[in-house]
């Protein structure tokens, strides 16, 4: 029923589904706060579950939902541009610590996809699924384009990127306790490198400084992966 509605009034349904998405997001933020802001109850989990239920009961397909909310997805672009602001606020420490920033990002950016692939070495998954894992640590606007280049499935790559981000956000504090990481620079840089924009959002929840360093990791790893991965694939094939 709603599907035909969507065809007849595309603007109305685009507005409606964008509003529903924002509404469900706000609701999951409230739930997250009510449950005591525990990382395990990451707002994205509740948000996805709730929207899945809504889509199921309204009979709207995921494709048409994604079409109706394409404005929200498009806004990721301008939002990514905004990352220049926290990046600029840390520019002095970036200049003074070239090695301390570049080396961890290079290592983290390399081991994250390699470890994920290694874990699936004996699992019979299609190769395009496995290739979609290679972009798991970079932010989704970059992952879509890079995944296309290397023969992954862009839509799946984005899902894996977001899942990685949520996992990073959920496990960050406990991982840092186990690995005894106390410096905010290291906490932030690793979060941004491994868990991209969702990790960075978590970083800003922890502190402005952690968030700023997460931004550094996010940007540099994103650029490096977007440049290096297609080159490696070009050389192999």
């Amino acid at each position: 029923m709603l599907n035909t509605y969507s065809e007849q009034y595309p603007l109305v349904s685009a507005f409606m589904w964008s509003t529903i998405t924002v509404g469900v997001y706000l609701l999951s933020l409230i739930v997250f706060r009510l449950l005591g802001r525990r990382p395990a109850f990451h707002p994205m989990i509740f948000c996805i579950a709730m929207l899945a239920v809504v889509l199921f009961y309204t009979g709207v397909t995921v494709e048409s939902y994604q079409g109706d909310t394409s404005l929200l997805t498009w806004l990721l672009g301008p939002a990514t541009v905004a990352l220049a602001v926290p990046l600029y606020s840390q520019i002095r420490s970036i200049r003074g610590n070239g090695l301390g920033i570049m080396l961890p990002i290079l290592i983290g950016g390399a081991i994250a996809p390699i470890l994920a692939l290694a874990g699936l070495y004996f699992v019979p998954l299609d190769s395009d699924v496995k290739l979609s894992l290679l972009t798991k640590s970079i932010t989704s606007p970059l992952a879509i384009e890079t995944s296309q280049h290397i023969g992954g499935i862009p839509g799946l790559a984005v899902v894996i990127v977001i899942f990685t981000g949520i996992v990073g956000a959920i496990f960050a504090s406990i991982t840092y306790r186990i690995f005894r990481v106390t410096s905010p620079q290291a906490q932030g840089l690793a979060l941004g490198t491994v868990a991209h924009a969702i990790g960075t959002a978590q970083g800003f929840q922890m502190s402005q400084k952690i968030g700023a360093f997460a931004t550094i990791g996010l940007c540099i790893n994103g650029v490096l992966t977007a440049i290096i991965l297609p080159i490696i694939f070009f050389l192999i094939s």
């Binding site: 080396l103 990002i105 081991i111 874990g119 990685t164 290291a186 690793a190 490198t193």
Partner: peptide, 19 residues
Amino acid sequence: LSIVVSTVLSLGITARICQ
């Protein structure tokens, strides 16, 4: 499992090196 383990490990190792 593979995504969770690889994400946690790389998070820890990257932060450790940086620190």
